[in-house]
Nucleic acid binder design. Structure first.
Lengths: 149, 149
DNA sequence: GATGAAACGTTGTGGTT
DNA sequence: AACCACAACGTTTCATC
């Protein structure tokens, strides 16, 4: 484990994962530090790559993506690299992992409706065999990182 | 699509998804609005549920989770509900979706090492049959939401 | 890490279109 | 209803200790 993360830094990380727009002054009040001390610790964690960034979380549904799916891809011979090259351009893909096992890729995609899904899958068949699972509900969404016991 | 999101709001959303700690004053400079105007628009998008929150993104690896896996679960009869009740308490689970198809659940989990993975899978077997895929690399990680064309 | 001061950002009021 | 201007207040940042 990274020794740069002491108890105080964990408390800071907890708050920033909960609300990334929280002021350093407020965080400082909660953990017993002054604002400059918090700012310095946060800067250091950014530089070390512990904090990778700050993102607003935007509703998929309210931006017109009523349908979510998990799609696995078993790439054809020589088709994995071409797929990896184009996938960053596919706006529908929210998350994409390269994995071990029978399938090479698993991705989380957001779509307007069933027609959009159909068009999206049609785009994929040139790269390999796909399997589609419709997401019924998201039980856990980007749970915060915690200290390992 | 939500008519509340005009071109200006999309520009604001783009910046907040890129850096949630960007000041309203700066965002305003980039889009041609004053800080209070940006603040008002952001407040409204929060109230409407378009913006769900602001989260610091923390490195999995640098917090001691060297191993990531995608695990699917095919729940035994009557075991899906108990699983859904406990999964929020499993710190290892970063994302969890209920899905259609042969499996009921797919989750992204972060783990210390192979022994941790073994212990985690052992915890799951009471709920159903699992399939584990080790994540080799994350090709796309929480891509920002965009306007639908 | 703390303190203190200057620069900057946020937030509320009032006014304009 | 959406925006701007202005001002009071809070926050960040930099120097110094």
């Amino acid at each position: 484990m990274n020794p740069k993360i002491d108890e105080l830094n964990w408390k800071i990380l907890k708050q920033l994962q909960d609300n990334a727009r929280e002021s350093f002054a407020n965080i400082g009040r909660n953990v017993g530090l002054t604002a400059p001390a918090v700012a310095e610790r946060v800067k250091k964690m950014e530089d070390l790559g512990i904090i990778l960034g700050y993102k607003a979380k935007v509703s998929h549904a309210l931006t017109g993506h009523q349908l979510k799916a998990i799609i696995t891809l078993r790439a054809f011979m020589g088709k994995l690299k071409p797929f990896l090259a184009v996938v960053p351009n596919l706006q529908e893909v929210v998350n994409c992992y390269r994995i071990t096992g029978n399938e090479n890729i698993v991705m989380e995609v957001v779509l307007k409706d069933q027609f959009h899904l159909e068009r999206f899958i049609d785009q994929l068949i040139q790269y390999g065999e796909t399997r589609t699972h419709i997401v019924l509900s998201q039980v856990i969404s980007n749970a915060p990182m915690h200290k390992i016991l």
